[in-house]
Write a protein that binds this DNA or RNA. Structure first.
Length: 265
DNA sequence: CTCAGTGTTCAGTG
DNA sequence: TCACTGAACACTGA
C-alpha cells in the first residue's frame, strides 16, 4: 500500500476526518519495534486533549499537526496504514495506535509486518530522517540537466537510483518499474549512461505517474489501463501486456523488477 | 512447509 | 568518504 500516492491519499483522508477534531483518548500498543523504543505513554500523553489542525507529508512520511508539540510522525513500512472507524466498530487487527475523537469517530494506525514506525517530533520537517530525503516529485523535480548531472555520478542501475530515497523521496518498487516501462528504459542501465533525452523521458514519466496516481487517490482501479501496474504482480510466468509484449521478472537493486524487454532497451 | 513481498538500515567491500 | 551490494529485519498470506 505505501508509496508516495498511497501515503498522500492517507494524508488527505486523515485531513478530512480529523481536521478540527479534539482527541478525547489515545491508546498506543507497547510495540517497541514500531515505536523504536519510545514509550506508549508518551505517545498517549502527546495526543490526549490535543486538537488536530492539519496533516503533512514528505516522501513516504506523514504527520499530524496538533495545536501543541510534539506531533506524531508515521511511516507505513510495507504494511502500515490508517483506518477510520465508527464508535461501535471493532478495532482492526495489528493495531498500533487508536484515537477517539470528539465527534464519536475513531482513528487507527495498524501495521502487520512491523516495518512501520510511529515517532514523536517537535518539527517533522527538521528531523534528520526527513532532511536526508531527496526530491519529492509532487513538490517538484530539478530540471532535466540537473537530474542528468545527478545521475552522472551514479553507476548503479537506474532502477536502484529511482528507489534511492536520498534522490527521489516517495518512489517505491511499483512506481520505479512503471517509470522505466513508460520511459522505455532498461532497469539495469547504469544511471550515468543515460543520455539527456532519456533523462527527460524518465523525468516526465515520473511526474506524470505520480500526479495521476495522486489524482485518483492511489485507487489502482482508476490507473490508466495501459499501465504496467495492472499486470506486474507476482512472478507470474508468461504474463503479457495487452499488446502481447512479454513481462519478465528479475531482481534489480535488490528488488523484484517487472519489465518488458521488447520495449525497454 | 516454503517463499515472496508497495521498505529501510547496516555491515562489508572496493 | 562515498557508492554500491546484499543480508537482515518481522510477519502474513499464497
Amino acid at each position: 500500500m505505501p508509496e508516495l500516492p498511497e501515503v498522500e491519499a492517507a494524508r488527505k483522508t486523515a485531513l478530512r476526518h480529523l481536521r478540527g477534531r479534539r482527541v478525547l483518548a489515545a491508546r498506543c500498543a507497547p510495540d517497541s519495534i514500531v515505536l523504536s523504543g519510545l514509550s506508549p505513554r508518551r505517545v498517549e500523553k502527546a495526543l490526549q486533549g490535543a486538537t488536530i489542525e492539519g496533516a503533512g507529508r514528505f516522501g513516504k512520511h506523514v504527520w499530524f499537526e496538533l495545536d501543541r508539540r510534539p506531533w506524531p510522525l508515521f511511516h507505513f513500512g510495507m504494511t502500515g496504514g490508517f483506518h477510520f472507524l465508527g464508535p461501535a466498530e471493532p478495532s482492526p487487527r495489528f493495531l498500533k495506535l487508536e484515537i477517539e475523537l470528539d465527534d464519536g469517530r475513531r482513528f487507527a494506525f495498524t501495521d502487520a509486518r512491523r516495518f512501520g514506525r510511529l515517532r514523536l517530533s517537535g518539527d517533522p520537517r527538521s528531523e534528520p530522517t526527513l532532511m536526508g530525503l531527496g526530491h519529492d516529485p509532487l513538490f517538484g523535480l530539478p530540471k532535466t540537466a540537473d537530474l542528468a548531472r545527478l545521475f552522472g555520478g551514479r553507476k548503479a542501475p537506474i532502477k536502484a537510483v529511482l528507489l534511492d530515497q536520498t534522490v527521489f523521496a516517495g518512489v517505491g518498487n511499483w512506481i520505479a518499474d512503471e517509470v522505466l516501462y513508460q520511459a522505455s528504459l532498461h532497469p539495469m542501465r547504469p544511471a550515468s549512461d543515460l543520455k539527456t533525452a532519456e533523462v527527460a523521458r524518465l523525468r516526465s514519466a515520473l511526474l506524470r505517474i505520480i500526479r495521476r496516481a495522486v489524482a485518483v487517490d492511489a485507487d489502482s482501479d482508476r490507473f490508466p489501463p495501459g499501465w504496467l501496474f495492472h499486470r506486474r504482480w507476482g512472478r507470474v510466468k508468461n504474463s503479457k501486456m495487452p499488446d502481447g509484449a512479454a513481462i519478465v521478472h528479475d531482481t534489480v537493486g535488490g528488488r523484484t523488477t517487472a519489465w518488458v524487454p521488447s520495449r525497454q532497451r
